[in-house]
Design a protein around this nucleic acid. Structure first.
Lengths: 186, 186
DNA sequence: ACTGTGATGACACGACGTGACATCAGGTAG
DNA sequence: CTACCTGATGTCACGTCGTGTCATCACAGT
């Protein structure tokens, strides 16, 4: 028998989300979380840099995005790279997780600090997109614009997707959103 | 003679930016700032919600943006509203302040927490743009896209503007950036 | 059997942000 | 002229957060 129960990280996440559901994010303290998980607060901060980080899960989205972007066909136009990557991303990281994402969204919306952190995550995705485009030889200004627009497309579409009752695939919504943007800029 | 020297807020800002220049943002504590300004830490938090806020000045950018957007001609197309507002904004809040903005930019770039707060400020501007557009009858999804794109245009252009040596007006750069975006989405 | 190694705990600490209450100058009403 | 109110500030106490440091101990490899 191991000295410590395994899965500390998972226990911390479980305890945290339970408490967030019971009392809300801001009313929940780190000691409360660790007490429920049977760990010390010091251990909490070994897994999560701060209290907010636990909300954003363990998936390293930027790294994943960089991977998807790096796999793009060398002959594709920049916009095609973006759109194909967004499709892949939608299908692998979003589709089938609506309930989970809705729950997280609610928690994030409930706290200013979490909204702030959410924006930072978004920006991190934009930065890897920017770097991937620059690596393909796209001009910096154009790359910035495309990267930011990419993130905008994704998040506006996700909002739309989460708000819907039907099962329209996120990838389709993203394509529609691009069309809407094009027409709005004319 | 007044019991307290007037201009507490100004003294706090002055002391803070001096210390940030000397030691950097994160190495500067609130007590250090208030000691130099001759005030208590409690008073600091009466003027600034937290240590980060002091970097972003006292100007209520979102309120100003809302004003500019509300003054737009009722007959303008949404995109024209955005572009004209951006022009006004560039001329009244940015032009002539390059050095100040560069200094702030450096401080903000030096600290993750400040970058996070900066993104929040950006988002706040986006939200007032969104609300102004919805108030004009623009569809929600389209309004989101335009609002986010508006903020993207502004910030990408400001980056470009701050990086330049010449005196090309920000408003012109924004117009160019829109053209770049249009061509990138084709 | 010995020795790392890695995950955890225990403890102390500094900084942050807030609530509650005291202080006091200046203006205003009576 | 006095009494009161108001607004800006100070003082104190507190809870939470995040980090540095060191001790502990099961397990694996030699």
């Amino acid at each position: 028998m191991a000295r410590w129960e395994p899965g500390s990280r998972g226990r911390l996440e479980k305890a945290a989300f339970e408490l967030f559901a019971e009392q809300g994010f801001s009313a929940t303290t780190v000691p409360e979380i660790t007490a429920r998980a049977g760990l010390s607060t010091r251990t909490f901060h070994r897994y999560f840099a701060d209290k907010r980080e636990i909300v954003f899960g363990s998936e390293d989205i930027p790294a994943n995005a960089a991977q998807v972007l790096a796999d793009a066909s060398p002959s594709d136009e920049p916009l095609d790279v973006i759109m194909k990557s967004l499709r892949t991303f939608a299908e692998t990281r979003f589709e089938g997780r609506r309930d989970d994402l809705r729950m997280r969204g609610e928690i994030i919306r409930s706290d200013p600090g979490l909204r702030e952190r959410d924006l930072q995550k978004r920006e991190a995705v934009g930065r890897v997109a920017y770097e991937a485009l620059v690596a393909r030889g796209v001009q910096p200004t154009r790359a910035s614009l495309l990267a930011e627009t990419c993130v905008t497309l994704l998040y506006v579409s996700v909002q739309e997707w989460l708000g819907r009752d039907d099962e329209k695939p996120l990838a389709d919504i993203i394509a529609d959103t691009l069309e809407t943007l094009r027409s709005a800029l004319t």
